[in-house]
Design a protein around this nucleic acid. Structure first.
Length: 601
RNA sequence: GGGGAGUUAGUUCAGCUGGUUAGAACGCCGGCCUGUCACGCCGGAGGUCAGGGGUUCAAGUCCCCUACUCCUCGCCA
């Protein structure tokens, strides 16, 4: 028989609140049964709410409550009334409330619970699919509660910071017009417009520029974006950005705002002082040394570009594979694994399997001997002394070092080497498998090329988007040497993750049309795709620029989570499915008819 | 679309070279227990070995297909 005190009583404290200072108080606590220990006489219940755990003890002398307490089980939702007692010598130093316990006099069962499908312990190793299926239970676990509470705090801090800096929180549509290029859009059929579709916004990019044209000067939004692309541990089909756009600014102004925001988040949430301004790394240098534009600088293992060395030595060098790769406009790169991290033969064979999975044909390697000779390498037989010496020098290779090579198509070599660098660093424990290890290496990657050459289509394509402003000094090359044009685009990177990116926009219609020409986009074509923005730019558009920060990634890194899924309450699995609700699901014929859609599976 | 790893009790896993009745821990249920906090002790229940097909005297184990999960390349202006 439940005592019904709940109807006339309010909760007085949370389960994370009571300390020795509260001894003697009458309290009412509500929460869930985290654990229980029945000693036949005393029954202990660890009561949990989002603030923490409190031990409640029921003694036999309070018979009604004691008998009921002996029946409660894990995850029942209950309320208790009792008196705060000191635990005396039985203090539990592992609990925030370990100085005290509540001696229960009354107990109400709000709701019983079935036995949970998995134990709701802090350190679970239950399969993620199972946890996602019962996400509402998984979310009861303290680590996830803590992460989402942190995320809530990040949202509040972000709003406060940006509002204080004069930014306006303005909203943009999710349902918009499909624009070609970029990420695949999720499509939404329109019932009122048969045969036509909205596209869910992959970002508020174009709208936020219109806010600048409209004269709002400083805009931000914490906003969902939708991209129908394959998932990764740091990619979900719907994700949240801190979207920012500013008028009358240079790159440095954007950097200052974002550095301040990140320093505030890390300071207020973690108590970590992040030094600003962040270091800046030239895009070209990043590609040369790390193979991508989001380098993890917590460790070394830089790449060495050998393309020129190979070219100089030519056929004399004795490595036809290198020469062929360079002749086919490919590149040659090397990476040194220092002797102190010696890899076994089996381990380097495994590395070869790993790189083959990314499209590499193999993994050439050479062990450097006492006098610079190479062993354990098929290259050692034919390579000339001169080339070998040149490579050793370029790599600063010492006896015992292992040199790993990759050559061929530039994009493949960069991808393979970039991933290999991180893979080896994890293997050698230079960086933790997950989390930051307490090291936060923020940086800006700057001055990338405006265009990249599309090998398949044999055309120049916008590396970011078609509205990025080129460096004034490079505008002269738009027609003659497009690959040489650098632009005001930037990415902010933390520990190997791109946590945000943006650009100063191109607001000059004359340069804009030259950019379109370089991209092979005709005037009519441009009008069809971006007409409204091009029109808008004609009406006194201010110089402007902005950035979007990946809020999920930021939260993941800030909370040391293993994946984005740990900082998103209801995430999708790698196939984009929600295993709890079974979305996406089929709909009936009538619904499809209503929106004039036929499936063709 | 490609590569890799995986799926055995409610959960996490073990299960060798194919061979009798598929095990452990935790959880769950029952009993005992007044100071535990990973309580303890005794007893018990619990299995479509992901699904389908094949090889074999015999398949959790070998082969093929499918589904699902995770990592990854492509993709993500």
């Amino acid at each position: 028989m439940a005592t019904q005190f709940i109807t006339e009583t309010k909760r007085t404290h949370t389960c994370g609140q009571l300390t020795g200072a509260d001894v003697g108080k009458d309290v009412v606590l509500f929460g869930w049964v985290h654990n229980f220990r029945d000693h036949g006489g005393a029954v202990f219940i660890d009561l949990r709410d989002r603030e923490g755990l409190t031990q409640v003890v029921f003694e036999p002398d309070a018979k009604e409550a004691h008998d009921l307490a002996a029946m409660v089980r894990s995850e029942w939702c209950i309320g208790i009334r009792g008196k705060v007692l000191s635990r005396g010598k039985n203090v539990n130093p592992n609990m925030k409330t370990g100085e005290i316990e509540v001696r229960g006099s009354e107990l109400t069962v709000f709701n019983k619970a079935e036995t949970p499908p998995f134990e709701l312990t802090d350190n679970t190793n239950t399969a993620e699919a199972k946890r996602l299926q019962y996400r509402y239970l998984d979310l009861r676990r303290a680590p996830l509660q803590k992460s989402l509470i942190t995320r809530s705090k990040m949202n509040a801090l972000t709003r406060a910071y940006l509002v204080e800096k004069g930014f306006l929180e303005l909203e943009t549509p999710f349902m918009g017009k499909y624009t070609p290029g970029g990420a695949r859009n999720f499509l939404v059929p329109s019932r009122l417009n048969p045969g036509k579709f909205y596209a869910l916004a992959e970002s508020p990019q174009l709208y936020k520029q219109l806010f600048m044209v409209a004269g709002f000067e400083r805009y931000f939004q914490i906003v969902k974006c939708f991209r129908d692309e394959d998932l990764r541990l740091d990619r979900q089909p719907e994700f949240t950005q801190i979207d920012v756009e500013m008028s009358f600014v240079k790159q440095d102004d954007v950097f200052e705002v974002i550095e301040g925001l990140i320093a505030k988040l890390w300071g207020d949430v973690l108590g970590v002082k992040v030094p600003t301004p962040f270091p800046r790394l030239d895009f070209d240098e990043s590609m040369a040394k790390y193979g991508n534009d989001k380098p993890d600088l917590r460790f070394g293992l830089p790449h060495v570009v050998l393309t020129d060395v190979v070219r100089q030595h030519g056929a004399e060098g004795g490595v036809p594979m290198f020469v062929d790769a360079v002749a086919a406009k490919g590149i040659v790169k090397a990476m040194v694994v220092p002797a102190q991290y010696s890899l076994s033969r089996a381990e380097s064979d495994k590395l070869e399997e790993y790189v083959k999975g990314m499209g590499a044909k193999g993994l050439a390697r050479a062990k450097v001997g006492e006098s610079g000779e190479w062993t354990q390498s098929p290259l050692s037989k034919t390579i000339s002394l001169a080339l070998r010496t040149a490579i050793n020098t370029a790599c600063e290779a010492k006896p015992g070092d292992l040199i790993l090579f990759q050559f061929g198509r530039e994009s493949m070599v960069q991808t393979v080497m970039a991933n290999l660098r991180v893979h080896i660093a994890k293997k050698l424990k230079l960086i933790p498998e997950y989390g930051s290890g307490g090291v936060w290496n923020f940086l800006w990657v700057v001055n990338p090329p405006l265009f990249e050459y599309d090998e398949d289509a044999k055309t120049w394509a916008a590396a970011h988007h078609a509205f990025t402003r080129p460096h004034d000094s490079d505008v002269q090359y738009l027609e003659t040497d497009p690959g040489k044009v650098k632009c005001w685009r930037y990415d902010v990177v933390l520990n190997g993750f791109e946590i945000g990116g943006g650009s100063i926009r191109l607001h000059d219609p004359a340069v804009q049309s030259r950019v379109f020409q370089a991209l092979g986009i005709g005037e009519e074509d441009a009008r069809n795709k971006f007409g409204f923005l091009l029109d808008a730019l004609k009406f006194g558009a201010p110089p402007h620029g902005g950035i979007a920060i990946g809020m999920d990634r930021l939260a993941m890194l800030l909370t040391n989570a293993e994946s984005l899924r740990d900082v998103i309450p209801f995430p999708k699995t790698q196939n984009g499915q929600d295993v709890m609700t079974a979305a996406p699901g089929e709909v009936d014929e009538r619904q499809l008819k209503e929106v004039f859609v036929k499936t063709a599976v």
